[in-house]
């Protein structure tokens, strides 16, 4: 490696800037929380994302302990467009999987899933 390349690298170290905020919608917070165990079923599911989402083009699926889909209404936006809220039916004990597909306000699509458990 030549000295100029080394000098350039050293300059790069000195100029390095740490990463900042997001510009694609990723899950920032969920209620019920990711991987949580709840003593009783919550009345609603809320997902907060790292940026604003377009509720009309977002879907939230809830899969029951057997893997079958649980019928839930379309999500509604809240909290400056960064949160989606879905009213939940009465859920029996078991492990549930939340599958989310969202379109962020910059039109990019992201998706993810997580589980929570109801029961002792």
């Amino acid at each position: 490696m030549t000295a100029p390349i080394r000098l350039v690298l050293l300059t790069l170290v000195l100029l390095a800037v740490p990463p900042r905020a997001w510009a694609h919608a990723f899950l920032a917070k969920a209620s019920p929380p990711v991987g949580s165990q709840m003593p009783a079923a919550p009345p609603e599911l809320t997902l907060r994302f790292t940026e604003g989402v377009e509720p009309l083009f977002c879907t939230i699926e809830l899969l029951g302990p057997s893997g079958a889909a649980v019928s839930v209404p379309a999500p509604k936006a809240a909290d400056d467009g960064q949160m989606l809220v879905v009213a939940l039916p009465k859920l029996p004990p078991g492990t549930y999987t939340v599958v989310w597909h969202v379109t962020s306000v910059d039109t990019h699509k992201t998706e993810g899933r997580y589980q929570f458990t109801i029961g002792p």
Binding site: A21, W22, A23, H24, A25, E51, G52, S104, D106
Partner: peptide, 8 residues
Amino acid sequence: GHIGASSV
């Protein structure tokens, strides 16, 4: 674009 969706 990305900037319009950024937190800053």
